[in-house]
Amino acid sequence: MNETSLDARREKGEMNDHAATGAGAAFRSAFPVTVPILAGFMFLGIAYGVFMNVSGFGAGWTFLMSLLIFAGSMEFVAVGLLLGAFNPLGALLLTLMVNARHLFYGLSMLEKYKGTGWKKPYLIFGMCDESFSINYAAKIPEGIDRGWYMFFVTLLNHAYWVAGATIGGLLGSFVAFDLKGLEFVMTALFVVIFMEQWMKQKVHDSALLGIGISVLSLIVFGADKFIVPAMIAILAVLTLTRKGMERKTAAAGEGGERA
């Protein structure tokens, strides 16, 4: 179990000797996986850019905000913040609440992002819903450098979002084409990733818990406030049932799945 020294070496990037040569191959296998995001982010990005434009912010602002925040729903919320009163503390609290789900992503990716060297800060910076779910569920082909693979998934998603937002910001209200409903591409992506996980795991308690508690919380607290209560309840149930869950997953032989 002497993983620590290995991880420390990986962290320093000493195991990335072949990384540069593997970048091209990693890009070629990462790109197809991000195509649904290309469609979704172009649509949502343009919608965001247009929204910024009609709210009185030029394409420069849109470009910077999409580049630096890179959290779709929060950027829509931020437009409202910018038009309201100057209240940094309130803005901080609201941001923490809207984006609290990222904490779960981080805990889930602690192992997967290990050993990615200099790419790690960027992987964490760009860990939006889509990058997290794709990188988490990715079946990275044999021989492909996983650091570069996850890096390109994140980078491409980031580029799609910034490009879409900036295009929307430049076009403003001239955008007339009817793409209503294209945002469903995100729902479809999450459903497919949920199924991929489901088929890979023998114990479905946690997946069912995630859906069940979230739906319950949505009904009780409404669309704007349900995430934090849902997260707390999920954590509480997973913590209280830990013994049973550990026994079940060990019996199903999933313990070493991500070793």
Binding site: S108, Y136, A207, G210, I234
Partner: peptide
């Protein structure tokens, strides 16, 4: 880290 991802993706669907 082992059990949260499945729940997190469920949350994401909702």
């Amino acid at each position: 880290g082992r059990v949260l991802p499945a729940a997190a993706i469920g949350l994401l669907v909702v």
